[in-house]
Design a protein around this nucleic acid. Structure first.
Lengths: 213, 213
DNA sequence: CGGCATCCTCTTTGATACTG
DNA sequence: CAGTATCAAAGAGGATGCCG
């Protein structure tokens, strides 16, 4: 990217991460941790492969990505986010929170990946009963399954399935999001086709009732 | 900007403000409030005038800017930031804080405008003595003069001069920044050419000693 | 298959000149 | 003051080829 040539910390930050796709690459690396090239490509639908390779190299040069030629059994290149990249998390969180306003409907053709639930979950869910038992919620969409684990006051997410989820939400991501953000009620999302099975009362424990969004 | 086509709030945010120059236009509007076209152009050195006019129109369409054809005596168009634009402030703050790491030296040819001090001042200064008397610090660089006003626990900045500043800092912005961020001492910045006059002890009151940057 | 590089087309940006 | 108009240069997108 061509520098803005401004002695301003916002402009300097954008000199490094303001290029198209760059912040989304950081998003994938922060959500998923070290990724293979193919993981990144899958998490960034629409990116041209030459652009991805260019951006990775630029991020390496800027010290935001570290490349590791992993030996067998991995036998592939892993791209790690560095500390400087992790320090961008507050900026990504702030942008993501601001962008929630555009998520009420899903544009035709918009791609979706389960891991993108990570930020919204962190915005909208909290453990309302830190002393309660550990519970898990499985999210099933057209993308990979994902699990929200609530335990001891902490809310975590990961790709994968739960062995015995306490609650399963199955359907369109925008319905799951409407439910988690309390924009729609259980009755409403069910009417729109979301399949809910398990301990519905669990939602009371995790829904944050004080989000400024 | 071409949409990323991803159902992710970060991608959606970048669909709106991810274009080159867009966040910097928001920066100017948030720092200065309603601006004339010429103010924006002056605060965005390097932008092509056709791009500025394009971006303003896009921001208007997105509901981040409101145009006002001010009647006399102003007799010019004013561009106001909307509430949605103001809600981007946390994102700009986070990016600006991250970008402070690139401010230790000033690249050759980097432009500077006094109002860009606003965010760094908010990062690094605080009123350590909320019950103390109101004081003001005037910053004099090659750009317009600027005033930091400390009073009742609050720190404010504005373009302009103070009638009787308690402290004047005059010299290169990177030296002022090094002083405010406590990267260099008074003795060091003075040795590098910063002219300091007035109540130096005042710095003790305002330097935040606990910034995570 | 994973990690690119090349080629080509199309879009966006930048620089400058000009206008009501 | 607040833009348009024009044109060259850079960047993005898409397809495909290559090599371990």
């Amino acid at each position: 990217m061509r520098s803005y040539g401004e002695y301003c910390s916002i402009a300097k930050a954008l000199d490094v991460v303001g290029d198209r796709w760059t912040l989304l690459i950081i998003r994938e690396l922060l959500i998923r941790g070290a990724c293979r090239y193919t993981d990144l490509k899958n998490g960034l639908p629409g990116i041209a492969t030459n652009l991805l390779s260019d951006r990775i190299r630029e991020l390496e040069a800027a010290g935001l990505v570290q490349r590791e030629d992993a030996p067998p059994p991995v036998a592939t290149t892993l791209f790690h986010p560095t500390g400087a990249a992790r320090e961008l998390e507050p900026a990504l969180r702030a942008l993501g929170l601001w962008g929630v306003r555009f998520m009420t409907s899903r544009a035709d053709g918009d791609e979706f990946r389960s891991q993108w639930f990570t930020y919204p979950v962190s915005f909208f869910l909290q453990d309302g009963d830190p002393d309660g038992p550990p519970v898990s919620i499985e999210l099933q969409t057209a993308s990979d399954p994902m699990v929200i684990e609530i335990s001891g006051g902490e809310v975590h997410t990961r790709l994968g399935t739960a062995t015995a989820p306490d609650l399963i939400l199955r359907g369109e991501p925008q319905l799951i999001l409407a439910l988690l953000s309390a924009k729609l009620t259980v009755a409403e999302v069910t009417a729109h086709g979301l399949e809910i099975s398990g301990d519905i009362g669990l939602l009371e424990r995790v829904l944050a009732h004080d989000v400024a969004a």
